[in-house]
């Protein structure tokens, strides 16, 4: 190459650079401010089936729950495979903030009143702040209001009370898959026999697989550590689907647990899957926005 070509080449370089710069992404001129992105909607609602999911009710939102469990399927044709009977729980969950939820409920089973507080300690996030898991805790209490079985003996009000403390650690692995573990302790003031423990330790495991945007499969299993319950009680296993339609989430499922509150489905599950001791049931969740988030309005 002689000197003339060199000059020509040098002269062309800026022109080409200019042409390329014009095609380039103008927005790339801005410094990319990295934002923290929180994982959302790991589960369609704040319950997997019976267990609390790692999701909370959004701040300012009231979630009205109507839960049913029909009788045991092994009741046969005479009991219309359980549909002749139904237990229900009505509940209201309210999101005090995006991280703090309070709920109350009333179950027909054992005429139980219940209440809980749930707080999200850590939120799964990516981007600026990385947090691999969501961690929540639930404190729940319930009151069995059935008349005393034996009114002649000395009965204490405290015998009606049950407490549950639960941690939930979970992760939305992908759009499709979310998994969680729930170490739990249930405290019962009164138990039936000396062999049964007042404090029962259990570990719940639950997951969901999203099939389409509006349909998901859920499963949960609660392993109660051995030698804590009487021989008639079994671990809770529930399988179901979530169907979402606008403001409702319908959860249809099969479960061997009759109760829909923690102390019940963890420590008092009598159904056995292999013997047809299975309830068909559903949860309906309907949300109402009570307080609009202030961030919406400027």
């Amino acid at each position: 190459m002689n000197w003339r070509n060199w000059i020509l080449l040098l002269a062309l370089v800026p022109v080409q650079y200019h042409l390329r710069a014009q095609d380039a992404d103008l927005l790339s001129l801005l410094d990319d401010q990295e934002v923290t992105e929180y994982a959302t909607a790991a589960f369609k609602t704040n319950r997997v089936i019976n267990l609390h999911s790692l999701e909370s009710t959004a701040g300012g939102v009231l979630d009205f729950k109507i839960n049913h469990r029909f009788g045991f399927i092994n009741g046969g044709a005479y009991e219309f495979f359980g549909l002749d009977n139904a237990m229900m729980r009505l509940g209201f969950d309210y999101g005090i903030t995006d991280r703090l939820t309070a709920g109350i409920g009333r179950s027909s089973f054992q005429k139980a009143f219940d209440g809980f507080l749930k707080y999200k300690i850590l939120r799964q996030s990516s981007g600026k702040k990385v947090m691999p898991v969501t961690l929540a805790m639930v404190a729940a209490g319930s009151l069995n209001s059935v008349k005393w079985a034996d009114p002649t003996r000395e009965n204490y009000f405290s015998s009606r009370l049950f407490y549950t403390y639960q941690l939930i650690v979970g992760r939305k692995f992908s759009d499709r898959l979310s998994l969680q573990l729930s170490p739990t302790v249930v405290h019962r003031n009164l138990v039936a026999t000396r062999a049964e423990k007042n404090d029962v330790l259990a570990l719940g495991a639950a997951g969901r697989v999203k099939l389409t945007n509006r349909l998901a499969i859920n499963a949960e299993y609660i392993y109660v550590l051995p030698n804590q319950l009487g021989p008639d009680y079994h671990n809770s296993l529930s399988l179901g689907i979530d169907i979402e339609t606008g403001g409702h989430v319908f959860q249809l499922h099969f479960t061997n647990s009759t109760s829909m509150i923690e102390k019940g489905f963890i420590t008092e599950t009598v159904g056995q899957w292999q013997k047809g001791g299975i309830h068909f049931g559903f949860n309906v969740s309907r949300v109402f926005t009570i307080v609009s988030p202030s961030r919406h309005k400027e």
């Binding site: 701040g59 926005t289 988030p293 919406h296």
Partner: peptide
């Protein structure tokens, strides 16, 4: 994700 709605759902 930065779009804010009146209703969380």
């Amino acid at each position: 994700k930065a779009f804010q709605f009146e209703k969380a759902l």
